[in-house]
Amino acid sequence: MRPTGGSVASFLTGVTPAKRRRDAEALTALLQEVSGREPELWGTIVGLGSCHYRYPTGTEGDMPLLAFAPRKAASTLYLESTAAHADDLARLGPHSTGVGCLYIKDLEEIDLDVLRGILTASLRWAESGGDEHAVLTVTG
């Protein structure tokens, strides 16, 4: 995966429904605050920073350090693992999870300080090089 060079502002303008667009704009600002990086489009994903990953299996590629995708059903935030944030997720507010995805239907219903902590921890994990499951090298 690589940045596609599209306009983040134009992409966000086209997000529907209106609540998801509102959340996407707020998430973009929050991820910028946490990472100190500018958002880029990676297809339909808004990513900040970049890294190269390599799994013990030899699979490797590139991905954003922090990222989210505004989908119709929910905003999807991409994390290294939701299990790593179990205690914080219990305090977050209404959400659902996948192995590495956090799904939020309404940003106004969650605790933004808790979300900020989760994102900060996820960024630190990536910037520190990952772990035995994925070795990461920050590239941007």
Rank of each mutant, 00 (worst) to 15 (best):
P3V: 02
T4Y: 00
G5W: 00
S7C: 10
S7Y: 04
S10R: 15
F11Y: 15
L12F: 00
T13A: 12
T16H: 11
P17D: 08
A18K: 15
R20L: 01
R20P: 01
R21Y: 05
R22Y: 06
A24Y: 02
E25H: 10
A26R: 11
L30E: 03
G36L: 04
R37F: 07
P39L: 03
T44K: 15
V46Y: 00
L48P: 00
G49H: 05
H52V: 06
H52Y: 10
R54K: 14
T57M: 10
G58C: 07
G58K: 07
P64K: 05
P64W: 03
L65A: 07
L65V: 12
L66R: 00
F68H: 01
P70V: 05
R71Q: 14
R71D: 09
R71F: 07
R71C: 08
R71W: 05
S75Q: 12
S75V: 08
S75K: 02
Y78L: 10
E80F: 08
A84L: 14
L89D: 06
A90G: 13
A90D: 14
G93W: 03
P94I: 01
S96C: 09
T97K: 12
G98L: 09
G98A: 12
L102F: 07
L107N: 03
V114C: 06
R116Q: 12
G117F: 09
S122E: 09
S122H: 08
L123W: 00
R124A: 14
E127A: 10
E127F: 02
L136H: 08
T137Y: 01
T137Q: 10
V138G: 13
